[in-house]
Amino acid sequence: MTVAPVRGADWLVLLSEPVGELLGPILRFSSLGPIIAGVAMVLSLLILTFGWRTIVAPLQQLAQAAAQVSWGEHAAMDRSISGVAEIQELRNALHAMVERIEGYEAGIRDYLEALTEGQESERARLAHELHDGPVQALIALGQQVELAEQCVARGETARALELLEALREADTHVARDLRRVIGALRPIYLDDLGFLPALEMLARSTMLSAAAQGSDLEVRFEHVVDGTRFDPAVELAVYRIAQEALHNAAQHAQAHEVVVQVRRAAGELVLTVSDDGVGFTPAGRFDSYTRAGHFGLVGINERARQLGGALTIRSAPGAGTTLTVTFPESALGVS
């Protein structure tokens, strides 16, 4: 009950309401509480079950499959995994990554096999070249020395001098052949003359070799660096990469002009080899080059990767080819 006076009069207003009508809705709501709590619990369990089956369990399966892949079991990622769309997208991305890894591993195996065969072929070639060249020349020198000794013993001084002069000339030819063989194994200009002169001599020798085969190939060497020496591993890698790129341009690209450039950019060492040859369509993945037999490009890429560098290929049919290899400043060994 509520009492309120009326102003300006001696009146009172009385309001009364039965207690049952006031507390009835509250009591009725309280009686529904357990039912509402039960429904809420059931909904929570359904949501948790749905989340477990569509999110948590698929993620655990993906984690197990990824762990198996890390141990070389690539087939683990081929298993079907249910879940929400985002889980499926993640699984597809991991599956594509595994396919790239498998392709890269297959490419490396093919490259190593070709590299081993190339090494054996090169060893056989060098053995044959040494046997038929310097070894035979040294045998002939030994025979001429014996003849000279016999001439001296008989008092034929003039004949002995002729033989000695011939020996001197033959010795010069043997030394030249041996330097050529050694140069094929290790670029002597890199040690004797330095980094930039060695690259310049490489460009010149490539042009001379092409001319000897009847080609009009012109090779230009440009550099935008001073005479700073870099880490020996980097210098050798740059030399070998330039050597392989020049070989490709001369033998396969049908190029008439090749430009070899070495420069520094933002502290990095950049080697660029450009030609005006027939060009080609670059592959999206490097393992494609091994399947196509282009092991030279794979070798260039691997040499760069070993020192933290990167290879970029820009080419198109009929538009020539440009290879750019960048080595980070941390690999150059320059303080």
Rank of each mutant, 00 (worst) to 15 (best):
M1G: 15
T2C: 04
L14C: 06
L14M: 14
S16R: 13
E17L: 13
E21P: 00
I26S: 09
I26T: 09
L27D: 09
F29M: 13
I35H: 04
A37Q: 08
G38E: 02
L45Y: 09
L46A: 13
G51C: 08
P58R: 12
Q60S: 11
L62K: 04
A63Y: 03
A75Q: 08
S80H: 10
E89D: 11
A96N: 10
E99F: 00
G103S: 09
E105A: 12
D110Q: 15
D110E: 15
A114V: 08
G118W: 13
E120C: 09
E120P: 02
E120F: 15
A124N: 08
L126Y: 05
E129Q: 14
L130E: 01
L130N: 07
D132R: 10
V135H: 14
Q143K: 13
A160D: 03
L164R: 02
R168A: 14
T172K: 13
D177I: 05
R180K: 09
D192T: 14
L193C: 07
L193W: 06
M201V: 02
T206P: 01
A211Q: 09
A212M: 07
Q213S: 08
Q213E: 12
R220Q: 11
D226H: 06
D231S: 14
P232E: 05
R240I: 06
A242N: 04
H247E: 07
A250R: 12
H252G: 03
A265F: 01
V270P: 00
T272Q: 11
V273A: 03
D276T: 10
A283R: 14
Y289A: 06
G296N: 08
L297N: 02
N301P: 00
G309N: 04
G309T: 11
P317W: 08
A319W: 01
T321D: 01
T324D: 03
V325D: 04
A331P: 01
